[in-house]
């Protein structure tokens, strides 16, 4: 079997079986219970919450990210096994949202992690969240959800940005 065909099978299978990591960073975590439980039931699409990053395929950034959480999120993202995808919820990871002038919120997530799908809103309703999942499935099917390949390719740039946010560079500039 050729590599392309194998790839296609992989895509079809991973589209219908997206396991998300149950790691909630911000206020959007509240929108997930209706999506997971009986009202919207995302298990219809084969999605389900997973306890550890090793088993998961999708990382949900549910809302604002502080510098401290970003460190953990990056750890978690690097522990996940590719192909892996990132969905960002709400305004905050797009351009800062309500916390646009906060001293501790990283405002543009795509500078630290490759984001596959954004959902707008503050926060999005469960329908919006479902739309994001469906959009991600569509992208995977078309072979366009390639954030993890981007992360491998531009790894040095991402690492540099993460280090800048964690304050290593900041500390160095001030001489301590």
């Amino acid at each position: 079997m050729r590599y392309e065909e194998w790839n296609k099978i992989s895509r079809i299978a991973s589209r219908k079986s997206l396991w998300m990591l149950h790691f909630c960073t911000g206020c959007g975590a509240v929108e997930l219970p209706p999506v997971m439980t009986s009202r919207y039931d995302m298990e219809r699409f084969g999605m389900g919450p997973m306890a550890t990053p090793r088993q998961a395929d999708v990382l949900l950034i549910t809302g604002y990210l502080t510098v401290k959480t970003l460190k953990r999120v990056v750890n978690v993202y690097e522990q996940m096994q590719s192909p892996k995808y990132v969905i960002s919820f709400g305004s905050c990871p797009i351009n800062g949202g309500m916390y646009w002038d906060s001293y501790n919120t990283v405002k543009r997530l795509d500078r630290y992690l490759p984001v596959d799908v954004y959902v707008g809103g503050c926060m999005p309703r469960p329908e919006g969240v479902m739309n994001a999942f469906l959009e991600l499935m569509k992208l995977i099917d078309e072979g366009k959800a390639r954030g993890w390949e981007k992360y491998q390719k531009y790894y040095e740039q991402y690492k540099r940005n993460q280090k800048m946010a964690f304050g290593f560079e900041r500390g160095k500039n001030e001489g301590d």
């Binding site: 992989s10 299978a13 991973s14 439980t37 298990e43 699409f45 096994q81 590719s82 192909p83």
Partner: peptide, 26 residues
């Protein structure tokens, strides 16, 4: 029992196919 619809019956095959076609393995 949870009052949900649930995944399709063949979901187990999809899950295993996905896991066996994952690209990295630690």
């Amino acid at each position: 029992v949870h009052n949900r619809v649930g995944p399709p019956v063949y979901q187990g095959f999809i899950d295993i196919a996905k896991l066996l076609t994952k690209k990295t393995n630690i």
